[in-house]
């Protein structure tokens, strides 16, 4: 049993599509926001996989850096979305 770039990219594709499905399928806006970090995690998995298996030139850990930044950006986006969805309707 081994892990190759193909299997990492396949898992990344599944996570990205799952996040897109959550964002499209949920009726509630706040629940649809849950798809965003899953999609970003799929993209980050692809970055980490390429950094692990396919980065022949350039900085070897550049993909890990991109994955870290994507996770933080996903957290910020969800925080903003949840905050805005809890905002009061002016009366």
């Amino acid at each position: 049993m081994t892990v190759t770039l193909v299997s990492v990219l396949f898992v990344s594709a599944a996570l990205t599509a799952l996040g897109a499905f959550i964002a499209a399928w949920k009726r509630e806006l706040t629940a649809a926001l849950c798809g965003l970090p899953v999609m970003f995690a799929g993209a980050g998995t692809a970055f980490v996989g390429v950094a692990r298996f396919g980065a022949a030139s350039g900085a070897p850990l550049l993909g890990q850096e991109a994955a870290v930044l994507l996770a933080i950006a996903a957290l910020a986006a969800v925080a903003l979305g949840v905050g805005l969805s809890g905002r009061e309707i002016p009366r």
Binding site: V6, L9, F10, T16, A20, F21, R52, F53
Partner: peptide, 27 residues
């Protein structure tokens, strides 16, 4: 329609992953 689009996205990305054995480098 969005859910079907997500399924199509998965098919496209899975095909790209299947064709993705393009590089191999030492970590």
């Amino acid at each position: 329609l969005g859910a079907v689009g997500a399924a199509l996205l998965f098919i496209g990305l899975a095909y790209a992953a299947f064709r993705g054995q393009f590089a191999n480098a030492t970590f």
